[in-house]
Structure formats: structure tokens, C-alpha cells
Design a protein around this nucleic acid. Structure first.
Lengths: 210, 210, 210, 210
DNA sequence: TATGAATGAGACTTCATTCAT
DNA sequence: AATGAATGAAGTCTCATTCAT
């Protein structure tokens, strides 16, 4: 039993995960058979079970994978000086992620994961943590903006964060269903949404009146 | 029992659909066995197949059911005089639907349906038609608003519709995952989003300059 | 419970048997469902079970039906004076039965019955009795012919009977499989077969030598 | 067990086919359950489906098997010098096949196949091809015999072939139903049948008159 | 390490028969 | 007598997982 190198091992793991991603993206978790994944990975049944103890572990590994990738995504918008600019940057990053053709399979699997999160505790934890990252980021930006008087104070930071996240979740759904989604136009609308959260002169006046 | 009444028949059908809804809501379409539905419905195996030819037909019936219910939901906001008020009314209706505890199972099944729509043509058609209704409604309202000078013309009506729909789709997800979702707060944020699409004095001035 | 007339009762019975015959002829006994028979008969499930206690009873009734019809067939050749002429008459009758387009379904069901006879005691009894009739008839004719010196004595009467019966059984098979069966030509061959069983001058001489 | 040898594989296949043959022979194709075959084969449910994709494929495999065996059977009589002797040889071979106790199951399955051929295109094709082989063989022998003046020209070669084949089909039926079939006697009768097709002095005279 | 044949529980569905009406 | 809705055992087939090699 010659222990193979860690590099080789990691490569095998990725091979399997890629095969699983492709299969799950096409047929969902429960309509995909292990045999499909085995075939697509070019390995054997036994080999796959050497790397993942069960199909569920494979699903969870992909959920974690997604989680990790989103962490990278979020880090991009971090540290931007102006909170408003930070929000716009975040939107741009997500818009790009949404448009990337190479990410189609991952987006589709993501949707399957959203459904699976309803019944699989581990998947749900991964998904929830996944949206907690941008949420915390947005909340921080919004609170800074509110503190600086740039963002309206009559709307909760958490609510704003959830609205923005929801928008992208909805976009993923609509896009993956093959809807004619004018991404550029939608992004313009999202920009307007953010602007709608900003303080206006009338807000200032109104506040003055109170 | 010779030829039971249509009423009784419809009742049985509902009995099965309710059992299916409960099962699917808990375990998803593919992890729910017909045996589960049979057990929960209190009927026999054969009886269920007397009303639905297959598990798929059951899934599709629920999709159609959802479709029908959403049509009713949308009709509420129709015919409202002021387009802005119409949008707000629509949001209120959907907010209420989102909050209704009795609708929890239906919302969860809805999410499973979103995933299933990725691989089942019939389900996708039903889901897409389902979002087409409010979309058309919102587009109509927005275009009227734009024509009347109430809504900004620099954002597409379709984009606005898709943003609003996406928000609710995301809310459904977040709520069903058990997130601490401050619905009231979120609705306030949505109201602000809509207001963000309205024309402001600065818009008018800007337009005047052009 | 108004007892219906015997005439009506018999008509119903025939109605069911006809439906069963048509279904069995197309799909065989075990691939035909009671539902098929019920549908084709225009009656209800309960009604069919009022006349036949089970599907097996239906199969057996058809076997008996066939048995009865064949008895009629055989009676035709009976009582013919010349045994040779009797054999030829029998062949003509069976040839006609084989050619009758209206009998196609019955011939097909007959074949299914031959297979069923292998596992159903009652059906086998019916089938075996069915071939015993013409066999006895042929044996009688042949023995008379042999006694009269018209038919060779070096071949058993029973063997001749079985050969002739076998020929028609094989013809039924070949015809029902859609083979290009030149019935006229085949009948000519059968005639020759019979003639082959007759004594010739050389037989007489040969016998004289012994 | 990684990749078992072809020999082992073929052995397993035969194991299953034998079990299927025994079951089908007793109960017919449609009354035999896969569970019966599984039990009798000593393998597991899944293993059987590893070798045959469906019950139908199993039936067809047996049909093909039979087809192949009959090809061997026919080859025996081929190339015989004297056409008359060829016919007698063929009859002897089939008589032996009919008598072989080890072939009982195969003969019974054959009858079930005759019935199945009425509704299963693939099975019918196999059965029809199966009788086409001896038919062609007999036709060739008879035509040679007719050309040589050994066999009567007033009976079609095809008709003679069909008569001989029919005889054996009928014998199979009668034997499998448990009839007291005096095979030796019957074969003597068949010999006489063949002799009946030969030219006699009277034929020659008759032909001379024409 | 790696293979892939084998397992067997469980999936969906059918269907002969019954029985309340 | 007649109906047809209901039953539930049994059917065929799949598939996640294991383990002898």
C-alpha cells in the first residue's frame, strides 16, 4: 500500500469534486447516482469512497467549497474606504460572479444546495454561514455610512443587508431558470436601490422637523 | 363505493396533496417516498395512484396549485389607481404571504420546486409562469408611473420588477433557513427601495437641464 | 335484487367472454389485466366478477369454449362411409377452420392456451381432451382402413393420428406468426401425406412375400 | 472482486440463464418473478441485473440461446449426399432432440416462447428465424430430390418443409402436455410421410400420360 | 491503494379482487 | 344486480455502499 503524495491526493479529491459538481448541476443531488459521479470522475467506486465516506459527505464538501469561495469573493470589497463605494464595489463583484459563464454549474448546484439546506443540518449551516459573511460586511458598511450621516437611519442595517443579499439570490434563480435577465439593467437598478438608502436633503429637513 | 361525489373526490385529492405537501416540505421531492405520502394521507397505496398517475404528476399538481394561488395573490394589487400605491400594496400582500405561518410548508416546497425547476421542464414552466405574473404586473405599474413622471425613467421597468421579485425570493430562502429575519424591518427597507425608484426634485431639475 | 332472465344472463356472459378473447388474443393471458377486459366488455369490475369468480376461471371458460367448438368441428367428419374419404373430409374441415379470418383471435388464444396448459391443470385437461377427440376419430378411421386393407398396417393408427394433429398444430403456429403460408399448397401436401399412408401394390406384393 | 475473468463471467451468466430457464419452464415468462430467478440462481437481486438489464432481456437471451442451439441441430443434416437420406437424417436428429430428457425444460420454454412470439416482436423474430433454418434446409433437399426425380413434383418444396416442421412442433406440444406419445411409432410414421413424398412407379406412369 | 462485482433494502408502480353503496 | 373506489401484496428495478482480491 504505497501512500501517495499529498499533492496527488488533493488532485484526486478535486477530480471527484469536479465530477460531482457537474453531475449535481445537471441532475440535482438526489437524482445523481454515485455511479454517475464515478463514471465522470474516471475513477472507481472504491476510489471515490476512499476520499469521501458517503454521498452526503460529497454534498457537504461542495457546500463547504462554495462557502470558501464566497469568502474570497467578499474579501474583495473589504477595506474600501468610503462605505457607499464599498457597497457599490460589493455589488460589482457579485454582478461579475453572477455573469461568469464558468460559474454556471456552481450557481446551479448552489440552488440545489439552498433546497438541501432545508433538510440537511450541515448543508444549512454552511449556507447560512455563507450569507452571514456578506451580511456582516454590508452591515458594517451601512452602519459606518449611517454613523457618517451618508445613509438613512430609519432603515436597519441588517434589513438593508438582507435586501441586497436577497436581490442576488433572486437573480441567481432567475438567471439559472434561463430567464432573459438584462444584467446590466438590473445592476443599474441595484445601484439605484443603494442610492435610495442614502440620505437626501429632504431627509435632513425631515429629521430637523422631528 | 360507486361513483363518489365530485365533492368527496376533490376532498380526497386535497387530502393527498396536503400529505404530499407536508412530506415534500420536510424532505424534498426525491427524498420523500410514495410510502411516506401514502402513510400521511391515511389512504392506501393504490388509492393515491387512483388520483395521481405518478409521483411526478403529484409534484406537478403542487406546482400548478402554487401557480394558481399566486395568481390570486397578484390579483389583489391589480386595478389600484395610483401606481406607486399599487407597488406598495403588492409588497404588503407578499409580506403577508411571507409571514403567514400556515404557508411555511408551501414556501419550503416552493424552494424545492426552484431546485427541481432546474431539471424538470414542466416544473420550470410552472415556476417561470409564476414569476411572470407579478413581473408583468409590476412592469405595468412602473411604466404607468414613469409615464406619469412619478418613477425615474433611467431604470428599466423590467429591471425594477426583477429586483422586487428577487427580494422576495431571497426573503423566502432566508426565512425558511430559520434566519432571524426582522420582517417588519425588511419591509420598511423594501418600502425605501421603492421610494428610491421615485423621481426626486433633483431628477426633475436634472431632466430640465438636459 | 331483481333476478335477470337467463337469456340476459347468458348474453352478459358471452359479452365478457368475447372481450376476454379479444384481449387475450392481443396480449396473452397474463399481460391482459382485468381492467382491460372490463373496459372492453363495457361492464364494470363487479359485474365481471358476478359471472366469473376469477381471471383463471375466465381463462378456463375460454378453454372449455374452445373444447366445445372443436367437438362440433369433429362431428362433421364423423359417419363418413369410406375411411379414406373420412380422413380427407377431416383435413378439409380443419383447413377451413384454419383459414377462417373470423377465427384468428381464437387461434391466437389457442396458442396462449397451449402454453398455459403447461402450468394450469384445468387448462391442460381441456386442451388434452380437445386433441383426444380428433385423435380418437382418426384412430377409428385408420383402424377401419387398415382392417379393410386400405391403409398400411406397418404404421400405428395412433401415430398417424398424432402426426395429422401435429401438422395442424404447427400450421396454426406458423400462420399466427404471420408466416407466408400457402394454405392450398400445404393442404395438397397433407393430402399426399395421407396418400402415403395408403397401401400400394408393392405393399401387397411385399406382404405376400412375408 | 475486481474485474472477474471472462470465464467466471460467462459462468455466472449461464447460472442465471439456467435458473431463468427452469423458472420459465415451470411457470411461463409472466408468472415467473425476478425474485424466483434470483432465488434459484443463488445470486442476489442486484447481481442478476448486472448481467441482464431487464426481465425482457433475459427472455430474449434465452430466445437467442435457443436459436443458436437449433442452428447446431440443423447443421447435422447439412451436406448429406442423398437428399432423401438428408431428410431422414434431419428427422432422426429432431427425434433425438425431442426425446432428450435434459431438453425438457428447453422444450417447455420453447412453447412459452411460441405464445410470447405473438406479442413480442423480438421474440417472434427469433422464433421465425429459428424455423427458417430447417425450412431452408428442407426446401433445398426437396428441390434437389425433385430435380433428381426422386421426389414428386406435384407438391411444393416449401409445403413439404412446413409440414415436416409442423409435425415436430405438434410433437413438442403433445409431449410436453404429458401425452403418451410413442416416439418410435411416431417416427416410423414420419418416415412413411417422407416416403409418401417420393416418386412411385405410378407417378412416373401418370406423368407419362400427361 | 485501487478495483468493480456484489449486496439487499427500498424505490415506484400495478393489479386481481372486494365490498360499501 | 350492479357499481367502481379502494385495498395491499407483489411486481420490476435501482443504487449507496462494501469488501475480496
Amino acid at each position: 500500500m504505497p501512500k501517495i503524495s499529498d499533492k496527488k491526493r488533493e488532485h484526486r479529491r478535486q477530480q471527484i469534486l469536479e465530477a460531482a459538481l457537474a453531475c449535481f448541476s445537471e441532475d440535482g443531488f438526489h437524482q445523481t447516482g454515485m455511479a454517475d459521479i464515478v463514471r465522470r470522475s474516471g475513477l472507481s467506486h472504491g476510489a471515490v469512497y476512499l476520499y469521501f465516506r458517503s454521498k452526503d459527505e460529497l454534498i457537504e464538501a461542495l457546500a463547504d467549497d462554495r462557502h470558501r469561495r464566497e469568502a474570497v469573493l467578499n474579501s474583495v470589497a473589504q477595506g474600501s474606504g468610503n462605505p457607499i463605494e464599498g457597497l457599490h464595489a460589493l455589488v460589482r463583484v457579485y454582478a461579475q460572479w453572477l455573469t461568469d459563464p464558468a460559474g454556471e454549474a456552481r450557481r446551479r448546484v448552489g440552488i440545489h444546495g439552498w433546497a438541501e439546506a432545508l433538510r440537511n443540518r450541515r448543508v444549512r449551516a454552511s449556507v447560512v454561514e455563507g450569507i452571514d459573511m456578506p451580511r456582516a460586511l454590508i452591515v458594517a458598511l451601512v452602519e459606518r455610512g449611517q454613523h457618517d450621516g451618508l445613509i438613512r437611519r430609519d432603515v436597519g442595517a441588517d434589513a438593508i443587508a438582507r435586501v441586497l443579499i436577497a436581490i442576488f439570490q433572486g437573480f441567481v434563480l432567475q438567471k439559472c431558470w434561463g430567464e432573459q435577465l438584462d444584467i446590466a439593467g438590473c445592476m443599474a437598478a441595484v445601484t439605484t436601490v443603494i442610492d435610495g438608502f442614502l440620505t437626501t436633503k429632504s431627509d435632513i429637513k425631515r429629521r430637523a422637523r422631528t
